[in-house]
């Protein structure tokens, strides 16, 4: 785990991290009800800011034009709606269409926020830890690829430099020569990689790969706090699904705006808020505890 980002949710078992993101992104794609959208948007932004600090705000500022663009363009494709704002080229630009566009834009940006946090939290070793148990061969392939990619990148630049040294390539050549040179480098890289691969494979075999059951080592534990949090998360997800199924999140934007508001909406959105707030709350609580402890020293 990187110490750089003070993300405490990352210190929980990767299964919890992954489960959280699957739920956040999956449910985020699902709900179009304004209450749910606001929860998802605010909390995805809050979590990203707690991980990345100032960079999170910069990310959001970059997102603003995208929100505007998506919100304003979507109504152009849909003329359904009762409140006409203005007419262009004989087509109506409706209020309902605009609101729907805003909803889609917020949904899209929350999803991007969740993915940005995912990329910071779910490092490749966590991904392999989760899938390594029931996909041993695939996870071994993934591990090998992750090691080979930087290796190949280094080798490619070595080949390129060597070609430059012997005058086979230059920096200020024509595009055609650049392409041909790049292709030669790639071809040479492939030769080197395949030959090396056979040696690696033979070495693996002579060390007994495939002769027994594969074991795997991971640095992660499944503590009691992980179990408690997992049960809480599963409970919340189940509750949200029930509320959604009972019609708590039903909303119709066009032709007439109809936003459901009943007991299921309230329960559902509160549970949704609690679920999505888990990582941010963990981070903020940890920060507060740390401050208190430090002030006592």
């Amino acid at each position: 785990m990187q110490v750089k980002n003070k993300d405490n949710f990352s210190s929980y078992n990767p299964i919890l991290n992954f489960f959280f993101f699957v739920c956040a992104i999956g449910l985020g794609m699902f709900f179009m009800h304004p209450a749910f959208l606001v929860c998802s948007f605010v909390l995805s932004l809050l979590y990203y800011v707690t991980i990345e600090g100032l960079k999170g705000f910069k990310f959001f500022v970059l997102m603003v034009p995208l929100i505007l663009l998506l919100a304003l363009i979507n109504p152009l494709f849909n003329t359904a709606g009762t409140h006409i704002l203005f007419i262009y080229f004989g087509r109506a630009y409706t209020l309902e269409g605009l609101l729907y566009g805003v909803a889609i834009a917020f949904m899209f940006v929350s999803i991007l926020n969740w993915f940005a946090s995912y990329n910071a939290v779910m490092t490749s070793d966590k991904f392999i830890y989760i899938f390594g148990k029931f996909l041993p061969s695939i996870s071994l392939v993934l591990t090998m690829i992750l090691r080979l990619v930087p290796n190949f990148q280094r080798k490619a630049s070595q080949i390129g430099t060597a070609r430059m040294c012997i005058g086979k390539a230059g920096e200020n050549t024509e595009k055609k020569e650049k392409i041909e040179n790049g292709m030669t480098v790639l071809s040479g890289l492939a030769t080197w990689a395949l030959e090396g691969g056979i040696i690696t494979a033979d070495s693996m075999r002579s060390r007994g790969y495939g002769s027994g059951k594969r074991t795997n080592f991971a640095i992660y534990r499944f503590d009691s706090r992980d179990l408690v949090l997992l049960i809480v998360m599963i409970g919340l997800v189940a509750g949200i699904c029930v509320c959604g199924f009972m019609g708590g999140a039903a909303v119709i934007y066009t032709p007439v705006l109809e936003i459901t508001f009943n007991i299921y909406t309230i329960i559902g959105s509160v549970m949704y808020f609690c679920l999505l707030a888990i990582p941010s709350v963990i981070n903020i609580m940890e920060e507060i505890i740390w401050r208190i402890l430090r002030s006592r020293i």
Partner: peptide
């Protein structure tokens, strides 16, 4: 082992191919 390594190498070449064409 040989099968695994060949697939891993082809994947890594796919990903790293952009590095071979940095120009």
């Amino acid at each position: 082992a040989r099968e695994l390594v060949i697939i891993a190498i082809m994947c890594a070449l796919t990903v790293a191919s952009r590095a071979a064409l940095v120009w």
